[in-house]
Write a protein that binds this DNA or RNA. Structure first.
Lengths: 205, 205
DNA sequence: TTCCCTTAGGTACGGTACGTACCGTACCCT
DNA sequence: AGGGTACGGTACGTACCGTACCTAAGGGAA
């Protein structure tokens, strides 16, 4: 019987199968045997390409999560910042986020895999670039450390809580009690272009 | 042959054995069979008390890490804050910290176990209480959220990096770029009792 | 076309460790 | 005594990782 797949074609089939398994059962349910069977091949083909389960999991996830967050423009700095945090919060509690949590948990000691994962995540929600972009629109120029404070605190909430979804109150708290007070202290003198950054207003939800 | 241990006595022996295994081989090396053998009993006695490996691991760790951080008093707010961060950083990269990381990784989905772990950790290094105490000495009164910002950011660094030890530069950065600017904005008018909180001085290392 | 070399596919292991089942026996309590 | 409860011993069943070994396909070079 012909139709024996090779190289790229087989590799894609395996990755597709691995992704399906991830979406169905999470990383915990991703077993080499099931992926192999689902892809219509056997474990050999997998181990020829990835040294171990975690590597396959990361590769599959990386292809799955190749989405890029768009920088929001709500008209106010507060709105933009909240939008970024909410997007990250939603992603984290989405099916994809659950997979990511499993992977982080499993690859927690392998620095190489971790860097791949964080490269993925950084592009998605925590790169300093987008934060500085949002701040610059409000006439604020800060170091990367300061710019990403809000995201860092949110990520800390993810880790601390067991629950996947952080209540919106907490996001608002981070923004109003910490982030805006911090960055508005760095307001460049003559800038602002009509934007205001109220430190603690109850408006905008 | 008498001397059959029961109840508390046996339980303590098992926990002791589990702790020894944790210290020797980390959580990854903690197997039910080895613990049982080391405690001079068998797996039954273990499973009668803890539903699975992770629960035993958490219980053993909780008893092991029953240490309380003392609130530092270096004479300046900046010194106190840095001391707290450095203590947490050291703990995280210590043998105990490595065990904790393994446990967090393994119990990552079980909210009950996670809460036990975090209760332990909170008492150890992240409780809002000690942060507010240190701030109060400098005449600063803030919400728990603001008070614990530094610790939250440090914990975020732990997660983001693969490496167990965060460079001291980063701690200094968190303190000087974020934490002190943030909290000194909350200085109560007439207080201070001789303490100063320079936002970004190069002194004190 | 023919030959060969790379790579897929099949199957069976070895190894580890979790969690369970069963059974006999020591200890405690009444 | 006698019974209940817990311990100790041992053997499984299951799951899954990673590896070894062999056969077969199919593409490219001669």
């Amino acid at each position: 019987m012909g139709m024996r797949r090779r190289g790229q074609e087989l590799e894609q089939a395996i990755l597709k199968a691995a992704q399906d398994e991830l979406l169905e059962s999470g990383y915990a349910g991703l077993t080499m045997e099931r992926v192999a069977k689902r892809a219509g091949t056997n474990k050999n083909a997998l181990y020829r390409r990835w040294p171990h389960r975690a590597a396959l999991g990361v590769a599959a996830y990386a292809e799955l999560a190749a989405t890029r967050t768009v920088i929001p423009d709500t008209g106010s700095l507060r709105g933009d910042v909240l939008a970024l945090l909410r997007a990250a919060n939603d992603h984290w509690s989405s099916p994809l986020g659950e997979i990511l949590r499993g992977l982080l948990s499993a690859a927690g000691d392998d620095p190489e895999l971790l860097s791949v994962l964080h490269a993925r995540v950084s592009g998605g929600d925590s790169g300093a670039g987008m934060w500085q972009a949002v701040l610059r629109r409000a006439g604020i120029e800060v170091t990367p450390r300061v710019a990403t404070v809000a995201m860092g605190l949110l990520r800390n909430e993810f880790v601390t809580r067991g629950t996947p979804h952080v209540p919106d109150d907490v996001l608002v708290e981070i923004v109003d009690e910490v982030y805006l007070p911090l960055v508005t202290g760095h307001l460049s003198s003559g800038a602002g272009r009509g934007r205001s950054a109220p430190a603690a207003s109850a408006q905008e939800r």
